[in-house]
Write a protein that binds this DNA or RNA. Structure first.
Length: 583
RNA sequence: CGGGAAGUGGCGCAGCUUGGUUAGCGCGCAGCGUUCGGGACGCUGAGGUCGGGGGUUCGAAUCCCCCCUUCCCGACCA
């Protein structure tokens, strides 16, 4: 591609709206442009990178025997009513009506449609297993779109769905998808971890997230450096805390007017926040529940919901109806008519400071057994850095990450309502056992750029770079340089490389800056030394420069690409196209 | 949804407090010339409903009201 004829409007300055590095660089490099909050156009360069990711995804999905389909984004309401998700999905779903007033949504995911599709066609165990996937646009009216492609409202997703005869088959399909995902993210050059996760509204039991390590990430996972345990904070747990037994302080009431935040209470009474017993009041099935956690931990609602079913934090209206519940000053001592559940970490403390169930007062010296009882123990508190690993008790670490993939074992959550059944060997009708598997294809660009960049711009892994190599004739008025650049451009193209020729009438500085910003893995620099028959081949990632003769450029470029991880057939020139690339 | 910030040529910004000639600056863009190994220089030039609507005023980018959009923080942790 001759860049004079290409379209990649680079920006010299950072766009005002971009906050995180990947968003800034993708905008500056001319890869994407914003259309509205969380809505983006992929410009030619961005589209090329996206196509590379898609190609990798396809290859690896196909390798596992899954089959590509393409489903629509526009879904009728009744499809979503069948598994109850028209309601459940809530405001996250874009909804619209046609001219006749019929209701539709722009699909945020495709469990319903794919299950309905398969239900209509599957009738025998002989047709199973089956894994279908698509790469398609999803719509989610996010609470807060942000950070460019990271949390977009319209985005590209690869979603796959497996259909098996039984649990055992599901596990086999699941492990195939885990294998595919592992290969995909590796080929994309991502540093990532597979972690235990929570299923959310999709449902199902076993599920894992693929987390790309990144400071800009919105997720946090815990991991154990010694045994490999890893889990999203929403699913993570710890080894059983040490039970320190009851303390010896006398129970006394202390006035704390207007002070109810844990930090404020702790500093007023001069105790660590870990000695404040936080009492959160929730509405749950069967009435209000008080949840106790140490003041230096949060209640993780995802964990609470797993223990109790759907919960809702009590609001003002609830407190008006139940005058014995005092927001801000709630505590387990003398709390009547409420189920009291304590997190396991409450065993690790004593002589608690806690609410007195009386506005403006706290208790100090509260001890379990003597002063209050609990109706049950739960695991709902957030994990903290250094907590003991649930498997081996080593100190856990916390890391920020971008969720790039999520795999679920769904079971029959969708196949039952959609009557996706088959007849087994014994002639019995059974529901298919399903799994679903998602990859944020466009989000991968964000994750990759977050991990592969420097102060000058993007450093694409060669497998994703929009072009493998850029040829930079620094002075096109010099006939020798111009001629050499044409020869090198043609030669590299003949070798099957994706090559860009920067034949723009721009200064050397502009060409260097744009080449670094866009992130071509290799640059061929043709300057004064062309007169002596020499060129420079520079590796973007390392800055390493090879001084080579013009005849050696092809060899040096291939060597450089191989050095930064692109598998090529070295040696003999290949034909046109990408045949030379092995991946 | 709550809080904050911001919308002025393609991009980044100033001007607004204290209303008053043709609304500026840098970058980019076009033409010509000189340059040509890290975002070159000179000259000439084009390009703006000042987010939208309403109001105040002799006069509004500037003051008032309503709306829209974008970005950031938070979204109930007692």
């Amino acid at each position: 591609m001759r860049l004079r004829e290409y379209f990649f409007p680079t920006l010299r300055e950072d766009p005002a709206e971009a906050e995180i590095p990947s968003h800034r660089l993708l905008l500056r490099g001319g890869f994407v442009r914003q259309v509205a909050a969380g809505v983006y156009t992929f410009m030619p360069l961005g589209r090329r990178v996206l196509a590379k990711v898609e190609a990798i995804v396809r290859e690896e999905m196909d390798r596992q025997g899954s089959l590509e389909i393409l489903m629509p984004a526009l879904h009728p309401r009744d499809l979503w009513e069948r598994a109850g998700r028209w309601q459940e999905y809530g405001p996250l779903m874009f909804r619209l009506k046609d001219r006749a007033g019929r209701e539709y949504c722009l699909a945020p995911t495709h469990e319903e449609l794919v299950t309905a599709t398969v239900a209509a066609e599957i009738s025998s165990y002989r047709q199973l297993p089956l894994i279908l996937y698509q790469i398609q646009t999803k719509f989610r009216d996010e609470l807060r779109p942000r950070f460019g492609l990271l949390r977009a409202r319209e985005f590209i997703m690869k979603d796959a769905y497996s259909f098996d005869r039984d649990e055992e088959g599901l596990k086999e399909s699941y492990s195939r998808m885990v294998e595919a995902y592992t290969r995909i993210f590796r080929r994309c050059g991502l540093e990532f971890r597979m972690v235990e996760a929570v299923a959310g509204e999709i449902g199902g039991d076993v599920n894992h997230e693929f987390m790309a390590l990144a400071e800009a990430g919105e997720d946090i996972f815990v991991s154990c450096p010694s045994c490999g345990y890893a889990a999203n904070v929403e699913a993570a747990t710890t080894a059983e805390p040490h039970d320190v037994g009851p303390g010896s302080q006398r129970l006394e009431e202390v006035p704390t007017p207007g002070v109810f935040r844990v930090e404020e209470v702790a500093s007023l009474l001069d105790v660590p926040t870990s000695q404040v017993l936080k009492c959160m009041l929730y509405a749950a099935e069967g009435g209000p529940v008080a949840v106790l956690v140490p003041g230096d931990r949060e209640v993780v609602e995802a964990k609470l919901a797993r223990a109790l079913g759907p919960v809702r934090l009590l609001g003002e209206a609830d407190f008006e109806a139940e005058p014995n519940l005092v927001p801000g000053f709630a505590g387990p001592v003398g709390l009547e008519g409420v189920r009291v559940l304590a997190d396991r970490w409450v065993r690790a403390g004593r002589d608690w400071v806690t609410g007195a169930n009386r506005p403006g007062f706290h208790l100090r010296g509260a001890n379990l057994g003597r002063d209050f009882q609990v109706d049950g123990w739960v695991d709902v508190a957030g994990v903290k850095e250094g907590d003991p690993c649930p498997r081996c008790s080593s100190p856990l670490g916390l890391q920020k990450a971008i969720e790039v993939g999520h795999v679920f074992q769904l079971g029959t959550r969708y196949s039952e309502p959609f009557r996706a059944t088959f007849t087994d060997e014994r002639g019995e009708e059974r529901p298919v056992v399903m799994g679903c598997y998602g990859i944020g294809v466009s989000r991968i660009l964000t994750a990759v750029v977050e991990q592969h960049r420097d102060e000058r711009g993007i450093v694409w892994p060669p497998a994703l770079a929009p072009f493998h190599v850029v040829v930079l004739p620094l002075n096109l008025r010099d006939p020798a340089v111009a001629a050499a650049s044409e020869r090198v451009y043609a030669e590299l193209g003949r070798e099957g490389l994706e090559v860009a020729l920067d034949d723009r009438d721009a200064s050397a500085g502009v060409k260097f800056a744009d080449a670094d910003l866009v992130g071509f893995p290799v640059q061929v620099i043709l300057g004064r030394k062309v007169a002596e028959g020499r060129a420079e081949v520079k590796i973007r990632a390392t800055g390493e420069r090879l001084d080579v003769s013009l005849g050696e450029v092809g060899w040096a470029v291939r060597r450089s690409l191989a050095a930064c991880g692109l598998a090529l057939t070295l040696g003999q020139p290949a034909g046109e196209g990408e045949g030379a690339l092995l991946h």
